[in-house]
């Protein structure tokens, strides 16, 4: 890669601002799912552990790399599955509370259809 250390620092600083802005308004009921969801995202360390294990030399590095990949995989799958389970609980929200609105008939239909599709996709992403 051509980017030098300053390039990486630039990316880092910009990412700080994006990270801060993107969650600036969260209702308190979503604090736990958001924590769990961002927990899954730092599971991206899995890509780093793969690179490290792939290029490991000797038993010590092999062992460290192996444990690292295992832990990172746990972080990724556990993080996304737990978050999805939490959010599953919220799926009745739009249909339930706002069903009184005249236009809610079609909206409710969309939501439940989306919900069914979601659980299928969730299984796919997990595997």
């Amino acid at each position: 890669m051509s980017t030098g250390i300053l390039g990486y620092v630039t990316i880092f600083v910009l990412a700080v601002f994006v990270g801060y802005e993107v969650v600036s308004k969260v209702p308190s009921i979503l604090h736990t799912p958001l924590m769990s969801g961002s927990n899954a995202i730092h599971g991206i360390i899995l890509v780093g552990t793969m690179i490290v294990l792939g290029n490991a030399h000797g038993p010590a590095q092999d062992a460290l790399g192996f444990v690292a990949v295992l832990l990172a995989t746990l972080n990724v799958v556990g993080g996304f599955v737990v978050t999805d389970r939490m959010l599953e609980m919220f799926k009745a929200r739009p249909g339930g509370a706002r069903a009184a609105r005249p236009s809610a008939g079609s909206t409710g239909g969309d939501v439940s259809a989306g919900g069914a599709g979601d659980s299928g996709a969730g299984g796919g992403a997990g595997a």
């Binding site: 990270g19 993107v22 995202i41 599971g43 978050t83 979601d118």
Partner: peptide
């Protein structure tokens, strides 16, 4: 994913977007 998780309506789809990104990268 982070953006979606900030609102109840889009939270689940947001989480799936994150999972898809992760799967793709790995």
């Amino acid at each position: 994913a982070l953006k979606g998780l900030s609102s109840p309506r889009r939270a689940r789809i947001g989480n799936l977007a994150g999972a898809a990104g992760m799967l793709l990268a790995v």
